[in-house]
Design a protein around this nucleic acid. Structure first.
Lengths: 216, 216
DNA sequence: CCGGACAGAATTGTCAACAATTTTGTTCAA
DNA sequence: TTGAACAAAATTGTTGACAATTCTGTCCGG
């Protein structure tokens, strides 16, 4: 059992509890469908139940936690169908972002994408799937960021948070990095060419591929 | 000042407060940027502050309310730029839904769309912009529903809720219904033709038109 | 006349106790 | 043995009071 967290003076209790719990779920420290008892969490994080409650309500509307009236909270499990539906939404939203990024990114930012692409190629060549997965994640984050589309960014971050468990499963599949790499390079190429239409199309076909892989 | 709501026995207090508050905001009974004091709301709705607090936290993550630490809550005001960004997201998400609806809707559902289109034409011919606006809203809702894409539906409902104030402004603009009507009819046509690509394109160009109108 | 320090008011954040609900385990009769 | 009724335990929902923070208006020195 993890040691009780420090009182964390400046930080308000609710935000503390919220951050701790979200991290714990995202890091996969909570088993899927595990029950989240307010009392236990309160003791574990060193805050009162009211703060835990507030945090749980917030996590519920982020889609990370499931709450049933008078029955308590659990870590939400995302079925494969849901993961597919989520990825379909990612597909169009990231497509939007890629198109805007192709129009509005600075030359400096385009160089960052190029560097990321090279790092990803190297990771695949060296057979390091974990490094590749991290870079993958970062590439998508950068494209979102460069689009300047704040609303889409927030929606996508929420959606991505719900997929943590499926991401692992996908990254370690043999042969997957190779296929994924060329799609990613095409995305980078289209954005660097400042071709919004091609950029959107590249992102969409990449995520269509992810959907196929999710379905096995 | 509105009379205190009934205790609403079965319903739990938090859900009661949440529903009341959300309705009040969506109906425009709360002035934009109006301060929401927890005590006042608690008394007004006949629940305790804790329930109001919980409701406010939830409404914050729905984007209807803005909360600042130790400073309280206000009704969130959506700037024109934000409304544009939101509508861009609607554009791609509703495009996704239209494509899926074109594939998966039943013949019966397609007939509903046709009937809606006729009603909309009539409303424009009769010069009834309010009726037209309602039908407009219903058409979009039906398309979402027929797609069977639950994740997209939830995202879109959240986004739409944030636009209430801008919707009014747009619907009453002279000449707007005429332009909007033909775009809507094209959407219906494409879905009824079971042409996903055309359906997506029709929805996107319609909402691109809405974006132009928003920018004036 | 102006600006900063300070006290008071208003408001949000936190807490511990209590009430209501659901689940679980036990008993007893058929 | 099975099933329903019931009691006990666990857990969530609610309440009112208290603490911490921020805002507001006043006072005093310059």
């Amino acid at each position: 059992m993890p040691k009780e967290a420090r009182p964390s003076t400046g930080e308000q209790a609710r935000q503390h509890a919220l951050a701790q719990l979200r991290q714990a779920i995202l890091r996969g420290e909570m088993a899927p469908a595990q029950r989240l008892v307010e009392n236990e969490l309160a003791e574990q994080f060193g805050v009162t139940r009211a703060s835990v409650r507030a945090a749980l309500i917030e996590l519920e509307s982020e889609g990370l936690v499931e709450r049933i009236r008078n029955r308590g909270s659990r870590v939400r499990v995302v079925t494969v169908e849901e993961a597919v539906a989520i990825t379909e939404c990612r597909m169009v939203l990231e497509g939007l972002c890629a198109g805007k990024a192709a129009r509005e990114a600075s030359d400096e930012q385009l160089d960052q994408l190029l560097a990321l692409g090279e790092a990803m190629s190297k990771a695949v060549a060296d057979g390091e799937p974990v490094t590749y997965s991290d870079l993958n994640h970062e590439l998508h984050a950068r494209i979102r960021e460069f689009s300047g589309q704040q609303v889409a960014v927030e929606l996508l971050e929420r959606l991505n948070a719900q997929l943590v468990r499926h991401r692992f499963q996908l990254a370690l599949r043999p042969g997957r990095p190779q296929k994924s790499l060329s799609e990613h390079l095409a995305m980078i190429e289209a954005i660097r060419a400042r071709d919004p239409r091609a950029a959107e199309e590249a992102v969409r076909s990449h995520l269509a591929g992810v959907i196929d892989a999710l379905r096995e």
